[in-house]
Each structure stands twice: as structure tokens, then as C-alpha cells.
Write a protein that binds this DNA or RNA. Structure first.
Lengths: 114, 114
DNA sequence: CCTACTGTATTATGGCACTGATGCAGCATG
DNA sequence: CATGCTGCATCAGTGCCATAATACAGTAGG
């Protein structure tokens, strides 16, 4: 599987999932770099690199010396962006792969029923 | 996207797709390491590394000095393995992600209609 | 037999991404 | 102002990947 995913991307996903699941809302203070690093058993710089991805996407506002806060409308924006990316970029490839190996959507719906 | 995929894995996929699409059938001779390398603009050893993956999965039989042949039942086996892997390992993660970002299967079927 | 083609093993090298240790800069609080 | 927290920049180490130059082993065909 894709278990070789870099740590900083895993951390990014962890935070993103928390935001999408409603654990962090707009204006909330995210865990500090060191605190989150200690909690996850990772290096502070690796966490910082993950947080930097949120900055580049305008999802957090940085208050140096204080911490990182979830930006206004960030949760909704994140969700919308992920939807766009999934539908336009990810799903087409999945669809191609499914056709190739002979798996239909109906098969998948069926496999969820147990 | 996952465009950073190593070359040898891309080559593996290229061959696998060709097999699944019926371009190479059981008993067929695969392109030689050097020929395929030249055709794809890759290094012969990188191609060899890709071919080695097929060996490890028992999908090709090696005739040293002659070439690599698609093993008996390899195409069907490959397809079955890919189906298994997709349904058991890949799809559950996709499903989780879809639920998180609020995308349903119905949305995707609709997006294919244009 | 000899040539030309197969796959493969060896070793070395450069590049790149990930990770890690240290130190510095900014802010809040008592 | 001093302490302790923030984020962040710089530098070095590590491992995987790709490439390269050879060299070797096996086979088919003239």
C-alpha cells in the first residue's frame, strides 16, 4: 500500500481530517509545533513542514510567538478544495483503473453492505 | 498528485496496463530490457527492476538468453489480484475520504455524464 | 563456431526528499 | 525585564532512486 507516505504529509492529513471532522473550527488555536510533535512522536521540524502546507493554502493565520489559528472560512474552503481536487483529478484515475480491472461502482456499493 | 512515482513503478504500470488491455497475452514475449528502455527513454537497469517485480509475482517466466514471457494465466491472475487489492485495501480509504469531503457515488456517476 | 542478441550481477556516483539538532526571532505574562 | 512559550531559518546526515560503465551467463541463427 501507500504506507511510504512522508511523515509530514501524514501529519498534514491528520490535521486536515480533524478540521473536516469538526474538531478544529475557524478561529481555533492549533497545537503548537512542539506539542504536536511530542504527541505524535515526530520531529518538531517535520510538524512545522506540515503546518507550512496549511499556510501556503491560506488555511491558517500565523501569530508568531503565539501560535497558528484556523483562518476564517478555512474549514469550508478546505472541504471545497478537496472536493474539487477529488472530482477533477483523483476520481478520473480511479475510474480508469476500475474499468481496467473490471470493477464497477455497483460492486463497491455491494461490498459495503457487510 | 502522485506524479513523483519512481520510474521503475511507472514502467511496471505501463506493462501491467498493456497486459490488462489485452496487448500482451499469455505466452507472449515481452520487449527486451534494452529495447523497452530505448523505447521509453529509460535506463535498461530501471526497466530490469520493473520486470523483476513481475517475476516476484510469478507473472512472467524468464528464458535467459531469450527473453521474458507472460506466464500461463498471468493476465487473469493479475486482474484478479488487482481487483482484490482494490476492493480490500484501496477502496475503503477512498470511501472514507469521500465521506469526509461530502462526495457521494451518485455525484461521481453524474460527473461522468459530460 | 561465432556473432548477436537475450537477462543479470557488480560497483560507483549524483540527485533529491525526508529527517534531525541547534540556534535565533517574536510575543505574552507576571 | 525576565522567563517561557511560540514559529522559523540554517546546516548536516541519511536513504532511496536513477544513471552509468562494465562484465558475465545463456540462447538462437547463420
Amino acid at each position: 500500500m501507500n504506507n511510504k507516505q512522508p511523515v509530514y504529509l501524514k501529519l498534514f492529513e491528520t490535521i486536515a481530517h480533524a478540521m473536516l471532522d469538526g474538531k478544529y473550527k475557524d478561529g481555533d488555536l492549533l497545537p503548537s509545533v512542539r506539542a504536536f510533535a511530542n504527541e505524535q512522536g515526530a520531529n518538531p521540524l517535520t510538524v512545522a513542514k506540515a503546518y507550512q502546507l496549511f499556510q501556503e493554502r491560506g488555511l491558517v493565520t500565523v501569530k508568531r510567538g503565539v501560535g497558528l489559528f484556523v483562518a476564517d472560512g478555512a474549514v469550508q474552503k478546505l472541504k471545497a478544495d478537496e472536493r474539487q481536487n477529488f472530482i477533477n483529478n483523483i476520481w478520473p484515475d480511479i475510474d480508469k483503473h476500475m474499468r481496467r480491472i473490471g470493477v464497477s461502482v455497483a460492486d463497491l456499493v455491494k461490498s459495503e453492505m457487510h
